[in-house]
Computed example of a mutant assay.
Amino acid sequence: MTGKNFNRSFIRAALAAVLALAAIPAFADPATTAGMGADSADAPSDSRAALPESMSLSDRALMLASDINRLIVPGSRPANATATPVTGRAQSVLARAFALLGTPYRWGGTSTEGFDCSGLVGYVFRNALGVELPRVAREQAQTGMQVERSQLTAGDLVFFSTHSSGVDHVGIYIGDGKFLHAPRTGRDVTVSQLDSGYWNGKFVQARRVAGI
């Protein structure tokens, strides 16, 4: 695939995913998922949306930062919970993360050509906040302060174990019981449910990076 064609496909996929997130109350995980790997996940199918090819990654991030709270749609929040607007550094993290929706998964990937789970998290925090995180998920799970699942806020890191060997997957909590992550080979950066479905049972812990 040429650079021009890749750019067009990437932009269309990213904004299609953003529009889907804004319009749908919650992404549903399949009841069962077979063959889940270290960076595995369900992912909603994406439709294609026409967008100016000249829109850069930075432009998308700025656009999303100006209206990030519109993208976190109520749907799975408990009835007695109160929505908290995303502001400041957490807003910067989410804006950068949302701008990467639709980027393909690539094992060992750390750039917009493709990410694995920890590569995506590292890229977002480096470019949004100038924070350098460890390269792999199990080491990122030692970063910052551990937080209770009930106290999660946007920008926190959520960690999972898909095998018996400990932490092997990471994503960024976006609020409303959802997190953004790079799933596995054949999938794109997407949003999944944390409070139900496959990932609910694989959750291990959450960490808050200093400054969020």
Rank of each mutant, 00 (worst) to 15 (best):
A22I: 11
P85C: 03
A20L: 13
P183H: 00
V170C: 06
A79V: 12
V158L: 04
M55T: 12
L19N: 10
A26C: 13
V167E: 02
T143Q: 11
S150F: 00
K4N: 14
I68G: 03
D29Y: 01
I172L: 05
V131G: 08
S161H: 09
A128F: 06
A61D: 03
P44D: 00
A34T: 04
V209R: 05
G122D: 04
A31G: 15
S92E: 12
S150H: 03
S165D: 15
R89F: 03
F160K: 05
V73K: 13
G88F: 10
I212W: 03
R77S: 14
T87Q: 12
R135L: 07
L194I: 08
A210G: 11
V191R: 01
D39V: 02
L129S: 09
L71I: 15
F159R: 05
A99G: 14
A20N: 09
A41H: 00
G201A: 08
A23W: 13
E132Y: 00
Y123D: 12
V131A: 12
F98C: 14
P52C: 01
F159A: 06
T87H: 09
A50V: 09
W107F: 13
S58P: 00
G102E: 03
L94R: 07
S165K: 13
S58C: 00
M36H: 00
G37S: 11
A137Q: 05
A99H: 03
G108I: 03
A97T: 10
L21T: 13
A16W: 07
F159S: 06
S76P: 04
L100S: 10
L51V: 15
M55P: 01
S92M: 11
L100Y: 01
G171A: 11
G114V: 03
F6H: 09
G197E: 08
V93W: 07
D195A: 02
A17G: 14
Q193W: 01
D116V: 08
D46R: 13
F179I: 07
A83F: 11
R149E: 07
E132A: 15
S164G: 10
I68W: 03
N200L: 12
V191Y: 01
